[in-house]
């Protein structure tokens, strides 16, 4: 009997602890939010001048209103991020590769994402000659999921573009061999889309 009581006590204590921890968490989250906001506005990013250089270079060569947006992504180690429009995407990419000031010769990553209102392609580029990095993004309308391929510029974009096509259904025009690389040609639907419904829920 005594042992049972001890157990009972233990359970109670554990439950109380859990409650207290939950309360503390909420408090902590609230205070963290308050603290964060002013700090964010404080000082400009150390990479701001790099971003300015990129934008300047693009404006000089391609003119204004080529980019939809450009900002420093503070959550991603302050990487300069350029957002191109679907019709300027290829031009911007070309400039990023061949311009001497930019010279992004290495495509580190390419992937897409479904953001429900639109789709996005995210490209992370690096320049070995200039030791700098940039993230190039493009937003695509869901009604017209087509975008020029980057394979003619970087051969390394080949499979990642196939993967994006396979899992999200974004078509890359000018790709030498666009195929469903992971799932196979018979697969129905694009699994990484948010509205994808699995064929068999159980499996």
């Amino acid at each position: 009997m005594a042992e049972e009581k001890g157990l009972e006590q233990l359970k109670k204590e554990a439950a109380e602890k859990a409650k207290a921890a939950a309360a503390a968490r909420e408090k902590g989250a609230a205070s963290a939010k308050v603290k964060e906001e002013p700090a964010e506005k404080a000082k400009p990013s150390p990479n701001q001048h790099i971003l300015d250089k990129y934008v300047q270079e693009i404006e000089n060569h391609l003119g204004k209103e080529i980019l939809e947006d450009s900002y420093i992504n503070r959550l991603s180690k302050d990487i300069p991020t350029l957002v191109a429009k679907p019709d300027t995407y290829r031009k911007v990419a070309e400039l990023l590769k061949y311009n001497e000031q930019l010279a992004f010769d290495y495509l580190s990553e390419l992937h897409g994402g479904d953001f429900e209102t639109h789709m996005e392609v995210y490209v992370h580029l690096y320049s070995f000659t200039n030791q700098q990095a940039v993230a190039l993004k493009v937003k695509i309308e869901r009604s017209n999921l087509e975008i020029p391929s980057l394979v003619p510029l970087w051969e390394g974009a080949n499979w990642p573009e196939c993967e994006t096509y396979d899992l999200l259904g974004i078509r890359f025009t000018g790709h030498p061999d666009l195929k469903r690389i992971l799932l196979g040609e018979e697969w129905i639907g694009y699994p990484l889309r948010k509205d994808y419904e699995p064929y068999d829920v159980e499996v």
Partner: peptide
């Protein structure tokens, strides 16, 4: 719960 936004690290 990370803040809203995106991040790429390598």
């Amino acid at each position: 719960k990370p803040p809203k936004g995106e991040s790429f690290v390598r």
